[in-house]
Design a binder for these strands. Structure first.
Length: 231
DNA sequence: GCGACAG
DNA sequence: ATCTTGTCGC
């Protein structure tokens, strides 16, 4: 249990309290050049079971740059909060933190499914996770929450800035030729440039970077894994 | 009031 | 997120 057991703050809040909390926590986000060396990178994602009543978080730690999975942990708990655009972290982070606590390996960087600072109050789930754990994080969104942008080129590696209120809040990145782009934004202790660099460094033949892909697979897997491994 | 809206 | 098989395209 190398990860902080400290929940960071009270998670039983109302939507109004959650928004007020985001405004406070957003001031603690640090945009920096990112970690100098990354020996292992983690990917986190959450899936839902039983009609959304249970939340299952998965965290997978991979070696870098080999991207070989080293450790996988899961946490399953009752879903604590409804899905409200802009308040996703209050629904998914509690169980994600419990999955992270089970790790024996401390990751140097964490890729999170969802936005970083590309959020109305600049505190998407990746930024929130970073502030609470102190770990460098990057937000990897599969679609846009807020912000305007020009469609990036169709080749892998093409990028376009994601803007809101005349400020840059992220980067729209084509991680694979001719596929929908990803919305990359700094979470905590990373910046626009490093967030895109690390994301591409973790991306192979697929649209999603390996850490996210692997966590996704585990979090969304049918009970056990009979529909996959077996047969 | 109307439209948008991560997972 | 989740409900769900085969199928079109590179």
């Amino acid at each position: 249990m190398l990860m902080p057991v400290d929940p960071g703050h009270d998670w039983s809040v109302t939507p109004k309290e959650a928004i007020a909390l985001q405004r406070i926590l957003a001031a603690r986000v640090h945009l920096q050049s990112g970690p100098k060396q990354v020996r292992c990178v983690a990917g986190v994602d959450t899936g839902f079971v039983d009609h959304g009543r249970m939340a299952r978080a998965a965290v997978v730690v991979l070696s870098f740059p080999e991207l070989v999975p080293l450790e996988t942990r899961i946490a399953l708990e009752p879903t604590p909060f409804p899905y409200i655009p802009g308040l996703l972290s209050f629904r998914e982070l509690p169980v994600v933190l419990h999955a992270l606590e089970k790790l024996s390996i401390l990751p140097d960087l964490v890729l999170c499914d969802g936005q970083g600072i590309a959020h109305p109050r600049r505190l998407g789930i990746a930024a929130h996770l970073g502030v609470v754990t102190g770990l460098p994080t990057i937000g990897v969104g599969k679609s846009r929450l807020i912000g305007d942008y020009r469609e990036p080129g169709m080749e892998k590696g093409c990028v376009a800035p994601l803007m809101d209120a005349k400020q840059r809040i992220g980067t729209v990145v084509r991680t694979r030729r001719a596929v929908r782009p990803l919305f990359i934004s700094p979470g905590h202790r990373t910046d626009h440039v490093s967030a895109v660099e690390w994301t591409l460094a973790c991306t192979g033949r697929y649209r999603l970077p390996e850490p996210i892909r692997m966590a996704d697979r585990v979090a969304s897997a049918r009970r056990g894994s009979e529909r996959n491994s077996v047969r």
